[in-house]
C-alpha cells in the first residue's frame, strides 16, 4: 500500500469519526450514562427527596424475587406480548396480502388500515375508553345487537387485559401491515404464477412461498413488536392505571409506580435493569432461533 493510499484511508476514517461524534455524545449522555446510573441506583437505597443514600448491594434484586406483585406484573407483560404480537402480525400479514392487489381504489383501503398508526396513543386510548364504556360504549351495544352478554371491559379484572390487547392489535397491525406490504412488493409475481399453475392453493402459497420469502421482514417486525410490547405504558396509563386490582399492571407501569408514586428510585431502577436484561435476552433468543431460518430474496 502506497503512502498516499494510507493517508487517504486515515483521512476517511477521521471524517467518519467526526460525523459520528455528535451522535456518540448524544448516546452517551442520554442512553449509556442513564443505564450506568440506574445500575448504581439499583445497588443503593435511593428515595426521592431523601438526601441519605445507603449501599444495599444485591438486596433490591433479592426483594424483587420475593415480590409477588412483580411476578404478577411480569406475567401480565409476558401474556400481553405473547398474545398481542403474534395476532397483530397475523392480522397485518393477512391485510398486507389482501391489500397487495391492483384493484381500483386500493390506496384508499391502505390508508384506512394505516390510519390507527397515525393517531397518538394517548388519544387512541381515550377513544377506546369510550368504545369500551360498559353503559353506553359502542362495543357493548354491538354485543347486545348480536345477542351476546355485555361485559364490564376495563372495569373487569378478567376482561381489562384482553381489552388492552385488542386495542393494541388494532394499533400495531396497521404499522406492521405497511412494513410487510413493502416486503410483499419485492416477491416476484411469477413465483405465485408458477405455484398457481401447480395448483397450490392461496393459503398454501401464503405459508410456503410468501412467508419464507418475506421472512427477513417478518423477523424485523417480530423484534420491533417485542421491543414495543415490553415497553407498553401509555395505554395502561390512560385506560386503566394498571387496574382493576393490578389486572393490567405491566412492567413499565410498575416501574413508574415505584419510582414516581412511591419515590423508591432504587427499586424502580432494579426493575428497569431487569426489564432491559430480559428484553435483550429475548431478542437474543429470537435471533438464534428465527434469525437463522431467514431467507433472503436477494440471493436469487
Amino acid at each position: 500500500m502506497s503512502l498516499n493510499v494510507a493517508r487517504a484511508r486515515r483521512n476517511e476514517a477521521l471524517l467518519a469519526y467526526a460525523f459520528l461524534f455528535p451522535s456518540l455524545v448524544f448516546l452517551a449522555v442520554f442512553t449509556y450514562w442513564p443505564i450506568l446510573r440506574s445500575i448504581w441506583f439499583s445497588l443503593h437505597d435511593v428515595v426521592l427527596g431523601d438526601p441519605e443514600i445507603f449501599w444495599l448491594g444485591a438486596e433490591n434484586y433479592l426483594r424483587l424475587l420475593d415480590d409477588g406483585l412483580f411476578w404478577k406484573v411480569f406475567a401480565n407483560t409476558a401474556l400481553y406480548t405473547l398474545i398481542t404480537i403474534p395476532l397483530a402480525i397475523l392480522v397485518a400479514l393477512l391485510l398486507a396480502v389482501a391489500l397487495d392487489s391492483k384493484l381500483r381504489g386500493i390506496g384508499l383501503y391502505r390508508s384506512a388500515f394505516f390510519y390507527p398508526v397515525m393517531i397518538p396513543s394517548v388519544a387512541a386510548g381515550m377513544v377506546w375508553v369510550f368504545l369500551y364504556a360498559p353503559g353506553y360504549g359502542p362495543i357493548n351495544e354491538a354485543l347486545t345487537f348480536l345477542g351476546l352478554p355485555r361485559l364490564d371491559w376495563l372495569y373487569s379484572s378478567k376482561w381489562a387485559l384482553p381489552a388492552i390487547m385488542l386495542m393494541s392489535i388494532w394499533k400495531y397491525s396497521g404499522y406492521f401491515m405497511l412494513i410487510l406490504l413493502a416486503a410483499l412488493k419485492l416477491v416476484p409475481s411469477d413465483l405465485y404464477e408458477a405455484a398457481r399453475l401447480d395448483g397450490v392453493s392461496a393459503p398454501q402459497r401464503l405459508i410456503h412461498i410468501t412467508v419464507p420469502l418475506i421472512s427477513p421482514t417478518l423477523y424485523f417486525v417480530i423484534v420491533i413488536g417485542l421491543l414495543h410490547s415490553y415497553q407498553i405504558f401509555d395505554y395502561v396509563y390512560v385506560m386503566t392505571q394498571g387496574g382493576p386490582a393490578d389486572a393490567t399492571n405491566v412492567l413499565t407501569f410498575y416501574i413508574y409506580q415505584n419510582g414516581f408514586q412511591y419515590q423508591d428510585i432504587g427499586y424502580a431502577s432494579t426493575l428497569a435493569n431487569t426489564l432491559l436484561v430480559f428484553v435483550l435476552g429475548l431478542i437474543g433468543l429470537v435471533s438464534v432461533t428465527l434469525g437463522r431460518r431467514v431467507h433472503y430474496l436477494g440471493e436469487r
Binding site: P188, D190, L191, E193, A194, L213, H295, L297, E299, R300
Partner: peptide, 9 residues
Amino acid sequence: FQSYALYPH
C-alpha cells in the same frame, strides 16, 4: 418461465 420462477428458498 423466462425468469425460471424457481422458489429461491
